[in-house]
């Protein structure tokens, strides 16, 4: 149990260092990647490439393991169908990503270091509000 907690904490720390080192906590750089019609900055492609190579190896190893190292079973998503909710949600996320140059990981990773706390606090607070809003809307329809 302690191992599981320690493992996720360490994974979070490594993730945060990776995001910061790669320059992904800088919204101007992320926005630069999406600005293919303007002053394009390809850095994000290298970040994605590096992460994908390591994870491709991990997915190759995963089926050969009976169970995860510190848990008794796998907890992996099994959903396969592609619907409007998936595409619409991703498209809405893209709008916010393009507007602010921030996605959830870099936003959280810069909470402790951002030179302009008001900007990052505003973004994170309204991101959580957006998550809550989604919960309210979907629970009303259910």
């Amino acid at each position: 149990m302690v191992m599981k907690q320690l493992l996720t904490l360490i994974a979070g720390v490594i993730f945060g260092i990776g995001l910061t080192l790669s320059g992904m906590t800088d919204p101007a750089r992320v926005r630069g990647f999406l600005d293919i019609f303007g002053d394009w900055d390809p850095t994000l492609a290298f970040v994605m490439g590096g992460a994908l190579i390591v994870m491709a190896v991990a997915w190759f190893i995963q089926p050969k393991m009976v169970k995860p190292l510190v848990d008794t079973t796998w907890h992996l998503p099994g959903t396969r169908h592609i619907d409007g909710k998936l595409v619409g949600g991703a498209a809405l996320f893209g709008v916010g990503w393009g507007l602010g140059g921030l996605c959830p990981g870099p936003a959280i990773a810069s909470l402790g270091t951002a030179p302009s706390p008001a900007a990052i606090a505003t973004f994170v607070a309204s991101m959580l509000a957006g998550m809550l809003l989604h919960k309210l809307v979907t629970s009303k329809n259910a």
Binding site: P77, L86, K135
Partner: peptide, 17 residues
């Protein structure tokens, strides 16, 4: 703009899982 961006990111990532 940052507040609007956050709303879209929060709502969109939950909706799109």
């Amino acid at each position: 703009l940052l507040a609007a961006a956050g709303l879209f990111v929060g709502f969109g990532t939950r909706m799109g899982s």
